[in-house]
Nucleic acid binder design. Structure first.
Length: 572
RNA sequence: GCGCCCAUAGCUCAGUUGGAUAGAGCGUCGGACUACGAAUCCGAAGGCCGGAGGUUCGAAUCCUCCUGGGCGCGCCA
């Protein structure tokens, strides 16, 4: 829709220059960028600040520039109903309803694909997210990163990117050894030994399960064996089992990955990690200090050089990351996105530095940070920690409130701001949870369409003649909202901000609920006038389609009817 | 001490990358069902956009400083 105005502005500007009313404008910006939809309806459908920008070059007051443009408006199709000059020199365009009614043809034509676009132009993109260490099931805090990453990936897909969802498995570091040792302690316990779990061990129930499995399979064979004998097999099984848990946690949220990238198998066992360190060494990007090996990340703006090999001879996490990113870019992605927890923000300069040294344009490596989740229980904060007994597992919450509510809740606000997640509230399944509001709107639309079908009315179809009979401002407003979706999706995708889609849904549904209630006693969708009825049913169908598509991108279901939940409050 | 993120209504947060009179939800108060679903709607109250400067036609948005909170800061992952 915006492009219609951009074209008119383009032609008008050209005409003004051609007729010598305005001087040439060498540093003319992309005109579409000067246009946006004003907050206030009184300011029209689209407003351009082009006259203010042009004023300097034209050596004229902005309002004079605006007037000269207005007088030479090029609008052969008659799309502009009114053009007003307002404030310091805004050009406010109001389009004839016809433009919007015609625009709705796109919704009908594209159906489930409405709202999607190809601004991504088929770029190959890797989105890495979650990547929690395989030491235990996911907790609620991890869930936010998982849902956010998945929604960003879906947004990128919706805008014509070829997306790979990727999980980096840190299965080569110390934490895996710690996990194996925890399993071994539990294993000994199974054979009647009294053991004490050290501070750094993993106490979870799942550890016992893994120990039990090892005991079943190997008996007491590893009971007195030296660590060097059992560490390998214990770690291997533990990682496998824990990854199964994590996969299950993710599946419960509808999240699946295309690539599970094992640090151990793909970087250590292939020698890739060794190779990249050797290469860096040769190029004098590494140096020895205090028995460790440091990478000169300060060459690229990091504030300190960072170790890549510990004095024990083991590679650090950063070393793995360097080799990992090399592998990623070798796989031919146009760019890679890392969805990271905000507590890792300090690592960004290092990885960027390394990527530059790998000969990759640093702009091809992008980051988005997901801030912490403040976990509350009925208003009381409590600390999240894998070791603490009070931890709430992700699975627990998903099973309690459902995948839809969990996903929606996590996407409710921008990811770089901290989020309060009140487990008590989320469990309540009360109408305070906005996902019910949005889903109800969709179900209500479905209900109307269902009713129409039951009455034998023809299925909704695009009919400009009929739409012209709609005169309520709310109806035009709903059409405009629907038609704003493609641009909104594109903006959300490029900014990695799925929450914009959540707000779009809430606002659109609110507009619909309001329209519905105001009209229910007078001008129902299914009314006595067959022409209006046809038009309104089509409008409802467009709304339904837009909402279903938006919910689909967010990974939240769009139910055709709502099951009225049994009263949950009873158990409180 | 240095770096990154945040600060907007009582609470939780949006604000389309610098636009016009700053918006929602929850909560509070007052209203609306002979059902295309009231899991909804309408109205009211509620603001020095943390503070102080600066940039310009124009700032919640950009720059500097300050205050307050979160996270991080060479061998944790």
């Amino acid at each position: 829709m915006k492009t219609i105005v951009a074209k008119i502005l383009e032609d008008t500007l050209a005409r003004a220059e051609r007729e010598g009313v305005l001087p040439p404008w060498p540093e003319r910006p992309n005109l579409a960028a000067t246009i946006d939809s004003p907050k206030q309806a009184a300011h029209g459908d689209w407003a351009s600040n082009v006259a203010m920008l042009y004023a300097k070059a034209a050596r004229l007051p902005p309002r004079e520039v605006a007037t000269r443009l207005k007088d030479r408006l090029v609008d052969p199709a008659g799309a502009v109903a009114a053009l007003e000059i307002a404030g310091p020199g805004f050009l406010n365009f109001r389009l004839v309803p016809e433009v919007w009614w015609r625009g709705l043809a796109e919704v009908a034509a594209r159906g489930p694909r409405f709202g999607r676009s190809d601004v991504g132009a088929g770029q190959k993109v890797d989105v890495e997210f979650v990547s929690v260490n395989p030491t235990g099931p996911m907790h609620v805090g991890h869930g936010r990163g998982a849902v956010t990453g998945d929604a960003i990936a879906a947004l990128l897909e919706a805008t014509g990117h070829a997306v790979t969802r990727e999980y980096y498995i840190n299965d080569a570091g110390n934490q895996v050894k710690t996990l194996a040792r925890s399993v071994h302690l539990r294993y000994r316990e199974l054979f009647g030994e009294k053991v004490e779990l050290p501070e750094e061990s993993y106490p979870g129930e799942y550890v016992i399960g893994i120990a039990r499995e090892l005991a079943r399979e190997h008996g007491d064979r590893y009971l007195r064996a030296p660590e060097s004998e059992w560490l390998g097999p214990f770690a291997a099984l533990a990682v496998t089992r824990v990854l199964e848990l994590i996969r299950g946690d993710l599946a419960a949220l509808g999240i699946r990955f295309d690539v599970w990238f094992s640090e151990k198998e793909r970087l250590h066992e292939t020698g890739a990690l060794r190779a990249v360190l050797d290469d860096f060494r040769e190029r004098d990007l590494l140096y020895d200090k205090d028995g460790a090996v440091f990478f000169r990340s300060t060459l690229h703006g990091d504030d300190k050089d960072r170790p890549v090999v510990k004095s024990t001879g083991e590679p650090t996490y950063l070393a793995g990351d360097i080799a990992y990113h090399q592998d990623k870019f070798r796989r031919g992605f146009d760019w890679c996105l890392n969805v990271w927890g905000a507590d890792h923000h300090g690592d960004i300069p290092r990885v960027r530095a390394a990527v530059e040294e790998l000969g990759v344009d640093p702009l091809r490596l992008r980051f988005t940070l997901v801030q912490m989740v403040n976990l509350l229980r009925d208003g009381q904060p409590f600390k999240m920690s894998k070791r603490a007994g009070t931890v709430v597992s992700l699975r627990e919450v998903v099973e309690e409130v459902g995948a839809d509510a969990t996903r929606f809740f996590f996407l409710l606000r921008r990811s770089d701001a901290q989020l309060d997640f009140d487990v008590g509230l989320a469990r309540k399944q009360s109408n305070e949870n906005p996902v019910f509001y949005v889903q109800y709107g969709h179900a209500r639309l479905c209900s109307i369409l269902r009713r129409a079908a039951e009455q034998g009315l023809a299925p909704p179809r695009h009919d400009v003649e009929a739409l012209r009979s709609l005169t309520l401002p709310e109806e035009l407003d709903l059409a405009k909202r629907v038609l704003s979706m493609p641009e909104l999706v594109a903006g959300a995708a490029l900014a990695f901000e799925p929450h914009r889609l959540v707000f779009f849904l809430q606002e659109t549904v609110a507009a619909f609920h309001g329209y519905y209630t105001r009209s229910k006693n007078s001008d129902k969708v299914i009314g006595p006038d067959p022409v209006k009825t046809r038009a309104r049913l089509f409008l409802c169908d467009c709304l339904r389609q837009a909402m279903a598509n938006a919910l689909g991108i967010l990974g939240v279901s769009a139910p055709e009817r709502m099951e009225r939940a049994a009263d949950q409050d009873a158990e409180d």
